[in-house]
Design a protein around this nucleic acid. Structure first.
Length: 516
RNA sequence: GGCGCUAUCGUCUAGGGGUCUAGGACAGGUGGUUCUCAGCCAUCAGACCGGGGUUCGAAUCCCCGUAGCGCUACCA
């Protein structure tokens, strides 16, 4: 048996590599291929985290590529931990990322409601169905009893599964327990045989009999458990492909049993690898390392295109050397066949690099949209064209949008604040001469453009016998208070003649003071 | 404990029996960039988890270890 699974898994993998996965095969063989319907099913117990964002993106890409629908389903059956604020947060983050869905709690659709808390009667119905056909049974065990037997099983070296205590109760015993007022849940009577999953990413995965015990379908509170609600909804919403995180791989055994008992066709599954902390544990909300919430990156000045672009390559590889792919490129290149099988460590440095890349190439108007929340008031008051020109000039100095205020300061502040390096550059008689001469030259300049300013500077340099660093650095220091920044002619052009002259004169007199 | 998944530079990864003295990217080092830089360009360093097989030949196929992770809940 064991000998058989390996070669089969290999064949499945080889088929995926060759681009002929079972889905494609189904599509070409089936006369009427069923429409592609995928879903993203967050539980609103916190904010959207980066792993969820990546899963959502995979689903989004798959849906859009295949002309299918993306369903957003809110899995809020854990009443203690779910909240409406959190649901709103997740929705906001998805919107910010630009991952739009076709059906969901916020926009309805033919298979609603899309919040599990609003689908309770359906779960009850399906549970009754299973109860009636003997695939499920009422369980009267209390938490305390359950825990005690679990510990005992563990101590005896047996698997800590439910021991089937209530599975074969007689009707009168059940009546007795009910009269006692015991809590009553519904358990699934598992089918003890091997279950085989043909995973689109992992190939054949075999779950041997005895792996799971009878699990709970409906809690004593009447609310469904994850595995049950998930199957009832995926089946009821006609989901064709379930693309989700690997942590659910083992759960799939239970879900397969449920599809079978419900006489429903199971969707195709694709389990994507986990995103990991540096210690290779699952990246979670309390890992305390890099920020895990999408909102944290957003507030830190990362742009959605960069976050998504980074995340999608955590696990997916386009097959060539491209390191950054736009959404359109991904729409053309993405395939589950090229999603890897091992977990990936989240690398904030690389994300930062991707973000900087987007910022360095952005137009002024794009930066104005992206950077709105980060702009100082003085910048927001500027005419749009002026602001966009400034933004584009400083883009090379940005790694995140949070760098914007600092990068823009020389253009916005009324006076120049000298950084220590700049002060040192200006603290000489020669610097004073240069600033003074250049300020005079600028006052007579016919046309104010970067080019003309540059020529003027070079002319002054020639007269004073100075060029290169000696020529540019003092002027840069005088104009911006810094020793680095965008190209100097551009800086001067954007600053305008009046401010340039003013700052050069100020530097000249300051330099004189410190020289004396 | 049981079951499952995974295993190539520090990190993300390419690779699917010979084309691998293992390729690319981030981070790091070095050099350059008729002004500077966190920019850009060039360059260096850096990996096939271990052991057995199969084969003329293994990073690649098989087995056994080992390690990490996931599931084993009336969490999702």
């Amino acid at each position: 048996m064991e000998r058989l699974t390996r070669p089969l898994a290999f064949v499945a993998r080889a088929q995926r590599r060759a681009g002929s996965d079972s889905f494609a095969a189904t599509m070409s063989v089936a006369p009427q291929p069923s429409p592609v319907r995928v879903r993203f099913a967050p539980s609103p117990t916190g904010w959207l985290h980066v792993g969820g964002a990546r899963t959502a993106y995979f689903n989004w890409l798959f849906a859009r590529q295949n002309g299918g629908q993306l369903v957003l389903r809110v899995e809020d059956t854990d009443v203690q931990r779910s909240s409406e604020t959190s649901e709103q947060g997740v929705l906001d983050d998805l919107r910010w990322l630009g991952l739009d869905h076709d059906e969901g709690p916020d926009r309805g659709g033919p298979y609603g409601p899309y919040r599990q808390s609003e689908r309770i009667p359906r779960y009850r119905e399906h549970a009754d169905l299973l109860l009636a056909q003997g695939s499920a049974y009422p369980c009267f065990c209390t938490d305390v009893e359950l825990e005690a037997r679990r510990q005992a099983a563990l101590a005896a070296g047996r698997p800590p599964h439910y021991d089937g205590h209530c599975r074969h109760l007689s009707d009168s015993e059940r009546e007795g327990f009910r009269r006692e007022g015991r809590p009553q849940s519904v358990r699934f009577a598992i089918d003890p045989r091997d279950w085989v999953l043909e995973d689109l990413i992992r190939g054949e995965v075999r779950f041997p009999a005895g792996m799971v015990g009878d699990f709970v379908l409906l809690r004593a509170s009447g609310l469904p458990t994850y595995n049950f609600a998930c199957v009832v909804d995926d089946a009821g919403m006609r989901i064709s492909h379930v693309i989700r995180a690997e942590e659910h791989l083992s759960n799939t055994a239970r879900q397969l049993m449920l599809y079978h008992a419900l006489r429903a066709t199971a969707p195709r599954f694709a389990h994507v690898p986990l995103i990991l902390n540096h210690d290779r544990s699952k990246m979670s909300k309390r890992s305390g390392e890099a920020a895990v919430a999408v909102g944290d990156w957003r507030r830190a000045g990362f742009v959605p295109e960069a976050l998504l672009s980074y995340l999608v390559l955590l696990g997916f590889h386009p097959g060539d050397d491209r390191e950054i792919l736009t959404r359109d490129e991904l729409l053309a290149a993405f395939t589950l066949a090229r999603v890897g099988r091992s977990g990936s460590v989240f690398d904030a440095d690389k994300l930062r690099w991707v973000n900087a890349h987007y910022l360095h190439l952005a137009t002024g108007s794009q930066l104005r949209i992206w950077g709105d929340a980060f702009l100082p008031d003085a910048a927001r008051e500027l005419p749009a064209a002026r602001l966009e020109a400034l933004l584009e000039s400083v883009r090379g100095d940005l790694a995140t949008l949070a760098d914007l205020p600092v990068a823009l300061r020389p253009f916005l502040a009324s006076t120049v604040e000298l950084e220590p390096d700049a002060e040192a550059v200006l603290a000489s008689e020669t610097a004073r001469e240069l600033c003074s001469a250049f300020s005079q030259e600028l006052q007579t300049l016919a046309e104010w453009r970067g080019e003309t300013v540059k020529s003027a500077l070079q002319a002054v340099g020639q007269r004073l016998g100075r060029k290169g660093r000696e020529l540019f650095q003092p002027v840069r220091a005088a104009l911006t208070g810094r020793t680095h920044g965008p190209e100097l002619p551009l800086v001067a052009e954007l600053l305008g003649r009046e401010r340039c002259v003013e700052r050069l004169q100020a530097a000249a007199s300051m330099a004189r003071r410190s020289a004396e």
